[in-house]
Design a binder for these strands. Sequence first.
DNA 1: AATATTTTGTGTAAAATTTACTCAAATTAT
DNA 2: ATAATTTGAGTAAATTTTACACAAAATATT
Lengths: 241, 241
Amino acid sequence: MAKKGQYTYEYPHPAVTADCVVFGYDGKELKVLLIKRGAEKEASTTAYAGEWALPGGFMDIDKDKTIAHTAQRELKEETGLKLGIKDFKEVATFSDIKRDPRERVITIAHYALVKLSDVQADTDAEKAEWFSIEDVPSLAFDHDKILRVACSRLRQNIHFEPVGFELMPEVFTLPQLQNLYEAILEVKFDRRNFANKMKHFGMLVEVEDGTPRHGTRTPIKYRFDKDNYDRLKAQGFQLEF
Amino acid sequence: MAKKGQYTYEYPHPAVTADCVVFGYDGKELKVLLIKRGAEKEASTTAYAGEWALPGGFMDIDKDKTIAHTAQRELKEETGLKLGIKDFKEVATFSDIKRDPRERVITIAHYALVKLSDVQADTDAEKAEWFSIEDVPSLAFDHDKILRVACSRLRQNIHFEPVGFELMPEVFTLPQLQNLYEAILEVKFDRRNFANKMKHFGMLVEVEDGTPRHGTRTPIKYRFDKDNYDRLKAQGFQLEF
DNA sequence: AATATTTTGTGTAAAATTTACTCAAATTAT
DNA sequence: ATAATTTGAGTAAATTTTACACAAAATATT
């Protein structure tokens, strides 16, 4: 461990952290991953001990190639979740002078979208917990604000890139997908119109499972056509609601 | 001036800067404000001496309330332009490990929109110069990349907030406004369709100047209805093209 | 000075998109 | 058992978007 007071600069430097807003979806609710700040060994985690917070931590200026790598590394360390570097989307910088009681700390917030079904087993339940977005406790530092801004950023981005693939399980139903969009955008859609709009993009492939059809309460199952999905993602699309 | 080696930390800290992409519009072309990096007194400006760059500089962790205040202060110091703090919109963080040859520096890029007619006189011509966005020289550091990302961010934001007010002069013509949108979005519109769409928002007020009308080459003059403009800006609008 | 070119305002018809809506069968809840 | 909820499917009306032509004035060309 580094000796205290080892790093000197001609001018004062702020500390820089990356925080992660990890969204997951279980087919019913949009969720977010939080950690409980512990009274741990690390001096740097003692502030707001015992409170819920977004995963994140200090940039390692020697190891972290970019600030997104900080987010990736800290998320792994704090929750056990290992995501790809491209999964981290920048949200905004939070730099209020008093946002951290210890020293001047600016944080670059990121968000990531994950299939809850895939990762729930990976998350270290000792430290991390999934909360419904509707039911998040009050958070350490300015993390309430960060979460709000991340949500609104996600709401914006949903108009420019398809968002289901990252959040939905491999096989899903249209009502589930609609529910996700409604949860993110906080609106309600007409079932048939939503289905038509989605089908128009050509991203959906019906999954045959031999169950009887027509006028049934059991919804049809779909998966994403990955090629079309990636193409749409690359060229950017316009989704109007 | 601070003594060398005065500031010490337990862990290494990156230096943090804010850079500014200031867009202006003269009724014909979208422009951006650049500075010429000088071989000046300040040690911190010696890198890339003599090259063109975005205005910006190091965060003052004691004085700058937020990173946007860094952008505001540095823009004033380097170009003479004093903008309101809300004029600065965050673009993204640039944090590649080698982006600055001197030390680890991460920068938070911002953009701002200004009426060229209002501010051209304020800009210190010794240090700063307006370049057509079509004709920008190659820039210091990774500023080429920052500029590209700022342009695409502006292109995105234009769909969610009215953007003319900040860039157009008080009185303007529809062809000028269309030209601005075409410059930002890099597309061409039909004149009549563009006019109809714009008029639908109710932001435009015709300015009577007693000149003859009908089938003339002298375009009608408009100004923005500030109340409606602000209302639309606040509630966010959807502009489809 | 005459002539050609460019720019402007205006309206409408066709095409595309969006919206609103009903019913019967199957599942789940009571 | 009975009631309530959920699902898929198709169409007509309303709205929005797109495409398009001409005459007058200003500017550019010779």
